[in-house]
Design a protein around this nucleic acid. Structure first.
Lengths: 325, 325
DNA sequence: CGAGAGAATTGTAGCGCTACAAGACAGAAG
DNA sequence: CTTCTGTCTTGTAGCGCTACAATTCTCTCG
């Protein structure tokens, strides 16, 4: 900065103001400074600036996976929101809670303006760190027991809505595919909600099969096989993701079963594949873009000193009805 | 830090050393300092530390999209490499070159240890900035005309290898699906390579159809329709991505065409869907994880002052043969 | 028992920038 | 011609940390 100041014939403060407070500097002076900076490839050192000003315009987000298009929309939502407010977003991939902890420590070390996490399952050490910091924290995709703030939707409510949708189609023999093993809590919330809905409707709540999360499309055929054995006249299968649902649809194709006439199928997540395959998948669409946007908004509101009153935002969901169910 | 030092009864320097140079501090003292820090949720301010030491252990990467699993493996490769060397990786999503420019400016402002980009298509302003900085720059997925360093594979060579693979299956009527409009150069490299290979083999090089990149799976049916009209006896379709190839396979299912007997199909990218659908897709697999790893390695080598001699690394590719072709 | 070597610890200065207060300067009013 | 006002510009101090040199504190050895 010293160098640029000298080259432009002004003081370092004027250089600083040219970048950060354009209105404080005369137009002509500012343009000259910016020109000199551009000529020399000078970019203000944010680390130093943030240190001096005690604030940061960078928000850190930890995302567990970048494999599905819901997360893509979620990230876009965050990116769009930060861009609209002159902030920056930095992302770290973390597939395990241990990686998440490392990422959180890094963000805290960088003194980011806020941290956005996915889910509410963290290492005890992470929770400890998060509770002690004054940095705004937002947990997304869930709305229970936030450490600080949360943005998400109610998985149980979405499950009930999906069951009601298939009931309204006149379907009664409803099979449910869930994930077995150590999976995120937002998956485990679905089964009890399904059972409850079925009992309320006076229908069999036990047409349930659990598959491995790692099986991808492959989980479809095995789930279909298992549920068909439980009830050969099964009418519809509710899947934990659109990937599994697509696997079921492909398997129906192989078996020569018409979808939805012989078997209806519903997915979850409204991934890209849901609208691309034939028949299109009926699925639950979380408002992923909105969720990302709201998460950033919560951080910014907190930074602006606004009331921390409503710390939980429900971005809702929609049951998207396509041809598969 | 002052606070922690006081609480632990040592000087600030000892606190600093406890974190950064454990060997300089007596075990007992170090543990006490770390304990006090943990109790108070203290995390050293990296911005200040980096400023004082004049170095950074953070590498910035700009990625254009997180929609496909190749990029996922690529990011994992980078993440694994930085983790192995005690560095951190921060990601920014940028779908346009303008967004990329903003991201690059942010990284430069953060004084990262290195910047990793995808492709070699950038804004003139970005190139200018990149040439003037002394920060190591790596461009990935391409190996032509790097600004600084590059890691990638030769798309033309992979195209030729794919054509040879289908030729070796005895197929002769080969259709090609490309992307129309403003697409990344790595897509545009494929068509000339295809034409050349076909001419060398003495076969029709004009069974070509261009589709819109945004069409996803939907591009499959329209491409199939168009190529079938060009040559009703077409034997194989080479697609620009596995998504398009999957779209073609699904469409074949609808038409009752057996794959690969009636029509063989090849994709590109070895996305997850390639191995999940039936029949599995024959496709080109870029060594995405390796590419990410090598990109980080190049940055670290440069940081370690090692020779900048070999600045281009070819991570190669593989033609993965599955049932579809 | 004092000198010397080595380990552990501690001041000092400064990284590049910004907040804030103070200064310079032009033009308007008296 | 002085005073005042408002605009533009500039010193000063310090953000939280680390490199480096200096210091203190063992402990060993002649």
């Amino acid at each position: 900065m010293q160098f640029v100041a000298k080259a432009a014939g002004v003081s370092p403060m004027t250089v600083s103001n040219s970048f950060r407070h354009p209105e404080r500097v005369q137009e002509e002076t500012r343009l000259r400074v910016l020109q000199v900076a551009a000529d020399h490839g000078y970019v203000p050192n944010r680390a130093a600036g943030d240190l001096a000003s005690g604030q940061s315009r960078v928000i850190g987000a930890v995302i567990p996976s970048i494999k599905n298009s819901s997360f893509y929309r979620y990230v876009r939502g965050m990116q769009d929101a930060v861009a609209a407010h002159g902030y920056e977003l930095i992302l770290t991939l973390a597939d395990t809670t241990v990686q998440e902890h490392v990422a959180v420590a890094t963000f805290l070390g960088l003194r980011v303006a806020g941290i956005i996490l996915v889910g509410n399952e963290h290492e005890p050490a992470t929770i400890d760190l998060l509770r002690k910091t004054s940095v705004p924290i937002v947990e997304t995709w869930v709305i229970h027991d936030p450490i600080d703030m949360a943005v998400g939707y109610c998985v149980a409510a979405a499950t009930r809505a999906l069951v009601e949708t298939v009931l309204s189609r006149g379907l009664r023999r409803i099979g449910f595919v869930g994930y077995a093993g150590e999976v995120s809590r937002r998956f485990t919330e679905r089964l009890p909600a399904f059972r409850e809905s079925m009992e309320t409707a006076g229908l069999r709540p036990d047409l349930v099969h659990l598959v491995d999360e790692a099986d991808g499309f492959g989980a479809g055929p095995s789930a279909l096989e298992a549920l068909h054995r439980l009830d050969p006249a099964i009418e519809v299968v509710l899947c934990p993701t659109d990937i599994v649902a697509a696997g079921v649809v492909f398997e129906c194709g192989r078996r020569g079963w018409a979808v939805p006439e012989r078997l209806a199928v519903a997915g979850w997540g409204d991934y890209e594949i849901a609208s691309e395959i034939t028949p299109g998948l009926t699925t639950v669409q979380p408002n992923a873009h909105d969720m990302g946007w709201q998460a950033v908004t919560l951080v910014l509101n907190r930074a602006a000193g606004e009331a921390a009153a409503e710390t939980v935002v429900d971005t809702g969901f929609a049951v998207v009805c396509r041809a598969s169910a």
